[in-house]
Write a protein that binds this DNA or RNA. Structure first.
Length: 122
DNA sequence: ACTGTGACTTTCA
DNA sequence: ATGAAAGCCACAG
């Protein structure tokens, strides 16, 4: 059946959610990305919540590696069984947990460990 | 149109 | 190191 047109087609031709989902799909296996990163890559800077919101609204049947998305602290945001499931999935992908925490320096997607130039000016 | 909410992030104590 | 509060903006009712 036809779903409500939640996805507002933007000028790009794709809804914001779709962008986020697509971005999540780009996450390589064995790596994890933060919501903020997803948002940024989805052309939604400063909108990490939308990433989470979009993930929460993943349609049934759509295969999205939502488990590869974690918060900036390198931890799982979910707290219910979903969180446990996420951790399990990540471990299965090869992500190591250090005391319920993931080393973004090591498993962070597109995140240089330390050699990155000072792109961040302040 | 307005208000509330949010699978977040960053900053301050 | 941890904990709380503010900030941020799109989506949903």
């Amino acid at each position: 059946m036809i779903r409500k047109r939640t996805g507002k087609t933007k000028a790009n031709g794709v809804s914001t959610y779709h962008s986020i989902w697509q971005t999540v799909l780009l996450i390589p296996k064995g790596k994890v990305a933060t919501y903020g990163q997803i948002a940024e890559l989805s052309r939604l800077p400063r909108q990490p919540r939308l990433a989470g919101y979009a993930l929460h609204n993943i349609p049934n049947g759509m295969e999205i590696p939502w488990h590869r998305v974690i918060n900036a602290r390198g931890k799982i945001s979910l707290q219910n069984e979903s969180g446990k499931r996420q951790r399990k999935l990540l471990e299965k992908e090869g992500v190591k947990f250090s005391n319920d925490r993931i080393e973004l320096e090591q498993f962070g997607w597109q995140r240089s460990p330390a050699k990155r130039k000072k792109s961040r000016q302040m």
